[in-house]
Amino acid sequence: MKVKKAEFIKSATKASQFPPADRPEVAFAGRSNVGKSSLINTLVNRKDLVKVSGRPGRTQLLNFFNVNDVLNFVDLPGYGFAKVPLEVKRQWQPMIEGYLANRPNLIAMVCIMDFRRGVQDDDLALIHAAPHFKVQPILVFTKADKLKKQETVRKRAELAKQFGVKAEEILLFSSLKKTGIPELWQRIEELTGLTEQ
């Protein structure tokens, strides 16, 4: 998709605050500091649509973005070792689960993982939860530029075996090298039916 427009809509914590469910929606989820904000910015070709922070746990709300007036992106709070108060973390789970369970236009969730670290237990929990919410997971591994070619091939093959897919189906992404953008857009377009845009 050629992105002509990408803008912040609003932040929210509950359904009554969400924007209208009038176009397909794709959520982005991952551990804190996995490169989620950078991935979204790279995908829509904007430098600072989503605020990038070196401090884990910066995203504490559901942040909605409009892409080309035909699609919404939703940035979910990161999980894992976010440096935020425990009480805030406790509020995230019902907020995120409430969103996943009750958003009728939510089609897919981009599950973002650090390629160097592989799949963690909480990543697996998220991936396995997606079908329960009738949401299609798209598995993306960021920071793919950090490994040498031989190591990349080996690690990709391991992940493919783990998920029972072909190696080329493991989506590798690098915001720095701008790799993986067409492949991820293709998956999003296929799932949302926006291939004609």
Rank of each mutant, 00 (worst) to 15 (best):
V110Q: 04
P56I: 00
T42M: 07
L106N: 08
T59G: 00
K146L: 09
L100R: 13
P131I: 07
Y99I: 03
D123G: 03
F81Q: 10
F141C: 10
G57I: 00
L71E: 00
E87M: 13
A101K: 15
K146H: 11
D114C: 05
F115Y: 12
V153L: 11
K83Y: 01
N41I: 10
L100Y: 05
K51Y: 11
I138T: 06
F141H: 13
R90Y: 08
Y99N: 02
N102I: 01
F115T: 09
V74P: 00
M109D: 03
Y99L: 04
L49A: 08
N68C: 07
F141D: 09
Y99M: 04
K89D: 06
I40E: 14
I107Q: 06
L43S: 11
C111V: 15
V74H: 05
G54R: 12
D121L: 14
K47Q: 12
D121R: 15
Y79W: 08
K89L: 05
M113F: 03
V70L: 12
K83F: 01
V88S: 06
K134Q: 15
I127Q: 15
V44E: 08
V50E: 02
D123P: 04
R55I: 05
D69W: 02
R46D: 12
S53E: 07
V140G: 09
W92Q: 02
A125K: 14
V70P: 09
D122K: 13
V44Q: 10
D114P: 04
Q120D: 11
M95G: 04
A108W: 05
L76T: 03
P94D: 00
L139E: 10
I40H: 10
F115A: 05
N63R: 00
N41G: 14
V44N: 14
D48A: 15
V44I: 12
D75P: 04
M95W: 02
G98C: 03
R46W: 03
D122P: 04
L62P: 06
F65M: 10
K89M: 03
L62C: 08
Q93N: 06
N63Q: 02
I96V: 15
A130S: 11
P131E: 02
S53M: 01
G78Y: 01
V67S: 06
L124Q: 13
D145R: 08
G54F: 00
G78K: 07
L100H: 06
L61D: 10
F81G: 11
N63Y: 02
